[in-house]
Design a protein around this nucleic acid. Structure first.
Lengths: 162, 162
DNA sequence: CTGTTTTCGGATAGTATATGTCCTTAATTC
DNA sequence: GAATTAAGGACATATACTATCCGAAAACAG
């Protein structure tokens, strides 16, 4: 059970977009360079954010991405699910139905007990991510990243933001 | 992020093994037939349980698997990790190090803030599974599965248990 | 002792998914 | 009109999952 590397990518990208001034856009090219990522493939991940309506885009030079909502109104789960999908990590194939001791045509009243437990764990994972806002990440980063690096990074970004 | 189907398989198998009388063994063949699973591949999953010391084995006819500990002393996380591995679902590749604004040779004092949040969610998932004992599953099943199916299943099992 | 059954490990093949690249199209800016 | 961008399709590669087959060693029955 391994998350796509795209999850890591878009989380870092969203943190950068969260620091972008109102009305400005940042391109795939800039985000790829800033994080040392393959531009073409990162583009696919950003398209996922776009399809999930987490970011807005414009075309042309000075075009790119910006957040569609305030960082305090976007949580981690939304970002993760945008690229990873909303499917549960555990899929029940109902192997209990293969039990040769079952009467033919017997129908279960409840979903499988095994699945219910696995889904509960899945929900705990989702709940944790749902509780963390993008603004929380930005807050942590602005505290932990050395001030000069933090500042020069956004100078670098603003120089490239349309 | 999708768990292997083997996870579902071994959980159901452990539930059956938990109902096995003291000192008896159940073979891969029987477990595969009972759940309608490919015998050879299920064998790999059961080997994982064996390597994790969750089950004990004997060879020869009348050989097979039995639980190494009481069902109340085995939790879901142990079983899941036996086949799924103990690795975290989110792997941090430290893309922040690619930031061109970083001074050369700069070293981070803490693990990445993004990773810490993702790992926290991972821990919530693990905690949930850790809290559920195999005996809890058996308890639920014995309540929910119709008594006649439950009984005939274990008659079927005992007929094949060595 | 011989033959059968079992677990276990290695080898191998097929399938699905993840990763990565390339190209075209339409919109936007200058 | 030329350059730049997001979007999406097509395609290739890599990695993991699923599945099967085989041989070895151990246990058991006759």
């Amino acid at each position: 059970m391994i998350l796509k590397s795209q999850v890591e990518w878009v989380l870092h990208c969203c943190a950068i977009l969260a620091g972008l001034p109102e009305g400005r856009y940042l391109s795939t090219k800039a985000l790829a360079e800033l994080h040392g990522l393959p531009k073409e493939y990162l583009s696919k991940a950003l398209q996922s954010l776009s399809q999930a309506s987490l970011v807005e885009t414009t075309l042309g030079p000075s075009g790119g991405y910006r957040l569609a909502r305030a960082p305090s109104d976007i949580n981690f789960l939304e970002i993760v699910e945008a690229v990873e999908g909303k499917a549960r990590s555990f899929t029940c194939t109902n192997i209990r139905e293969n039990n040769p001791c079952r009467p033919a045509g017997y129908c279960d009243s409840k979903p499988c007990a095994v699945a219910r437990i696995m889904w509960e764990a899945d929900e705990a994972w989702r709940d944790t991510l749902r509780r963390v806002r993008l603004s929380d990440l930005v807050g942590t980063l602005s505290e932990e990243v050395p001030a000069d690096i933090w500042r020069s990074t956004f100078e670098w970004v603003l120089k490239r933001a349309g």
